[in-house]
Simulated assay, not measured.
Amino acid sequence: MLLIRLIDGINEIVGRIVAFVAVIFALMIIYDVVMRYGFNAPTLWAFDLTKQLFGFYFVLLGGYALRHQAHVRVDLVTEKLSPGVRRVVDVLGYLIFFFPFAWVFTTRSWEFAMRSLNQGETTYGAIQLPVYPVKIAMAVAAALLLLQGVSELLKLILNKPEPHHVG
C-alpha cells in the first residue's frame, strides 16, 4: 500500500539523517574535552549545544524506532497468543493507548513549540541558544511517531508481514 510505503520511507530517511547527529554530537564532546583538559580552554557553547543535539537525536528517532519494532514491549501476555489474536490485541493497543497518547503528544508539543518560538525562548547558559528548534523538533517527532503508528496499524489490519530491512 502506497501510504504504508510513504510513511515508512519518511521515517527511514529521517532516522538515517538523524543518525549523523550522533557523529556530530560525539565530535563536539571530544572537541570540548580536548579544549578543556588539553588546552585549559573550555568552550562556552559546547554544553548547551550538545544538550540540544542530544534532544534532536533522542526525539526524532521515535518513528524510526517504531518502524523497526525497536521500542520496548511487554510481550508476556501476547507471546502465548495465536498470531490472529495477537494481531487483534495489537490493533486494540494502538487504538486504545497509542493513538490517544500520540495525538496528545503531537498537539501539546506543537503548542509548546509555538509558544517557545513566539517568545524567542533561549537557554540560560553563557551563550544563549534558541530553544525553539528543539521544541519544534519534538513536535515534528510526535507527528512522525503518530504517522508511523498509522502505518503499523494498517500493516496489522491488512495482515502485511514486515518486509526485510536493508541497513
Rank of each mutant, 00 (worst) to 15 (best):
N11G: 02
E12F: 00
I13K: 05
I13R: 10
I13Y: 02
I13P: 02
G15D: 08
G15P: 01
R16V: 01
R16D: 03
R16P: 07
I17N: 12
I17S: 14
I17A: 14
I17R: 03
V18L: 01
V18I: 08
A19V: 02
A19N: 07
A19W: 04
A19Y: 01
A19R: 06
F20E: 02
V23C: 02
V23P: 15
I24A: 13
I24V: 12
I24R: 06
L27Q: 03
L27N: 02
M28L: 15
I29V: 14
I29R: 02
I29Y: 00
I30F: 00
D32G: 02
D32F: 01
D32I: 02
V34C: 08
V34I: 11
M35H: 09
Y37Q: 07
G38N: 03
G38M: 00
G38K: 02
G38R: 03
F39T: 06
F39C: 08
N40Y: 04
A41H: 14
P42W: 04
P42T: 00
T43L: 15
W45Y: 14
F47Q: 10
F47P: 00
F47C: 09
F47E: 04
D48S: 07
D48V: 03
D48P: 02
L49R: 13
L49A: 12
L49M: 14
T50V: 13
T50S: 10
T50F: 07
T50Q: 10
K51F: 04
K51S: 09
K51Y: 09
L53R: 05
F54A: 11
F54H: 11
F54S: 09
G55F: 15
